[in-house]
Each structure stands twice: as structure tokens, then as C-alpha cells.
Simulated scan of single mutants.
Amino acid sequence: MLRVVEKTRIWFIISAIIIITGISFMIYHKGLNFGMDFKGGTIIKIDMQKNFNKNDLDSTIQKYVKVNTYDTTKVGSKELDISVDSDKITDANSTKLFNDIKKKYNLKDKDLLSRDRIGASIGSELLQKAILSLTVSIILMLLFIAWRFEFKFGIAAVIALIHDVLVTLSVYSILNLPVNSSFIAAILTIIGYSISDTIVIFDRIRENQKKMRDKTLVDMTDTSVSQTVGRSICTVTTTIVTIACVHIFVPLPSIRDFTLPILVGVASGCYSSIFIASPIWVILKKRSNKKRASLAN
């Protein structure tokens, strides 16, 4: 039998180290590295029609924007994405930039696949809505679990969900990866995955509360986790393998922006369901029992 609850301090310390490290890097980087979706900017997508070296384009791009205010991404071998920070390039200059690239690589007007400008105000509004969607989803899950099980289960599950979000944000902060709308979609997916894994364990705990009245709260919880941990590990392994294959073999930035946080979040969700949610429920349950005992006396 796994001794999960007895080693609660170890699990909490591991999570605290990751989260505190992430917060430290966040302070060092002066916040998260928000992508164009949130901070605003101009995104130009060009079909180059042939293999190219994107470093060769720097001299052309820097005629219109300064260094460190743009990023270039090579999609496959023949498509170029140019992302310029908000207000660093005008529509007129973005047209001139494409014309220079078109002339240098013998392109046609149709090879300009798209040119989108996202205002900073739109990015700010998108960030607010993203935070609102995360908050509402967590509150609704708390209410559902409190109704389906009990309120202490709901509190433990929500803390585990917040843990998963913080761990994923910490990894992004440490690696200074861009946070965009795909990241938010991935976070919502992670929350759904993590809560389903946690509910499986909580359901077994609820069943064993009736069957194992002769056991202590800690032993009963450890037994419940041991009975479900095999399923959790098998589920997370198959999920990670599938998503990892998509991440590796589908080299599109939009896909990888979605799969990378899911890989981190799914692993964190499995960890939190086993090593965070259950111990927290035990802590809450013990406090509740102590209050009842003191009131009885």
C-alpha cells in the first residue's frame, strides 16, 4: 500500500519548490512572456514557395522594425511568420516589408497569406476574459463536487486545480515561453482532465469510508489511493504518449502552442490528484473532526 498521506510534507515541498522557482523567474523576467494575442502586435504570414534561411531575412526586416521587437518563425520549410510588437510597425511599413521580401524571393501578391493587427486593448480584453473563464470554471467545479460529494472534497479538488495551473505557469516562466490564447485553451483542457482524475480517487475514498470504518482516516485514504493509482498512471501515460507524438511529428507552432502546456499540465494533474488533493482532504477532514469533538465536549 502506498503511504501517500504520511509523506504529505514531501509532496508539498516538491510543489512549493517548483512554484516558488517559477515565481522567482517571473519576477526576474518582469512578468510572463505574453504572446501577440495578449500584448498586441502585427502578425504577417508569407508563403516563401521554397526553402529559405530565416536569418537571411533579418537585414530586410530590420529596415522597418528594431531588433528585439519582432520574432520570426519558420513553419515547415516554406512558410514564414513575422510577429512584431504592438505599435512597432505601421500598415504602410508592413506593406513595404512584404514588397521587399517579394522582390528578394520572386514572390507574388497571393503569397502574402495573412496580415493581422491586434490592438493592445483587444489583447488586454482577451486576457481579462481568459482569467474570467478560468475563475468561472473552477467555481462551477467546486459547486458540483460539493453537491456530488461534500464541500471538503470540493475545496481539496480546487486547490489541486490551482496547483496545476501554477505549476504550468511556473514551467512557462522558467523557460520564458510565450503565453497565448492556445495556452488558455490548454489550461482549460488540463483543468477538465485533472478534475476527472481527482474525482475517481475521491469516489473511491467515499466508498471506502463506509466499508473501512475500522481503519484510521490516513490508512483508509492511502488504501483508496493505492486502489486507483494504477488507473491514473495508465491514463496519464497513454495521454502523454499520444500528445507527445502530435507535438513531435506535427511541427506547426499553433499545434505546439497547444500541446506543450497540455503535456506539462497532464503530468501535473496526475501528480496533484494523487499527492495533493487526497492529503489536503485528510487535513480538512481531521480539522472538521477536531471541531466536532471539541463541540461535543
Results as ranks from 00 to 15, higher is better:
I174P: 02
I243S: 03
R9Y: 14
L295Y: 12
G192F: 01
N180C: 13
I276P: 06
W11N: 09
M36D: 11
I14Y: 01
T238P: 04
T90K: 05
W147D: 01
Y70T: 04
S15D: 09
S182I: 08
A157H: 06
R206F: 09
I139Q: 11
K110Q: 13
D56L: 13
T21A: 15
F183K: 07
D37K: 13
R287A: 14
S254Y: 05
V67D: 07
K285H: 05
I101W: 01
M212C: 09
M1T: 13
P261N: 07
K110A: 13
I131V: 06
T238L: 03
M141I: 15
K104R: 10
I17Q: 10
V75F: 11
C270D: 12
I195D: 09
L142I: 14
S181Q: 11
H29P: 00
I248W: 13
G40H: 14
Y172L: 10
I280A: 03
V165N: 05
L260C: 02
S133N: 03
D87A: 04
V200F: 04
Q49C: 08
S83Q: 14
I46K: 12
S224V: 11
W281V: 01
W281P: 03
I274A: 15
Y28P: 03
S15R: 04
K66L: 01
N106K: 12
T168H: 03
Q227E: 05
I13W: 07
I191T: 01
L166G: 03
G269Y: 10
S24L: 14
I159V: 11
K102Q: 13
S254T: 05
K103R: 14
T235L: 00
T189W: 00
I101V: 11
I205K: 10
C234M: 09
T90D: 02
M141T: 13
L132H: 02
L166M: 07
K102R: 13
E79A: 14
L295C: 04
I122T: 07
P253T: 03
K108R: 08
R287L: 15
S114N: 14
T135K: 08
T8G: 07
S288Q: 14
I43C: 08
S294L: 15
F202T: 11
T168M: 06
E6S: 15
I240K: 02
L132Q: 02
S182A: 15
L175K: 06
I14F: 06
K66A: 05
Y271F: 15
S232K: 01
K129I: 08
H163V: 12
T235G: 02
H247E: 12
D81C: 10
I17K: 12
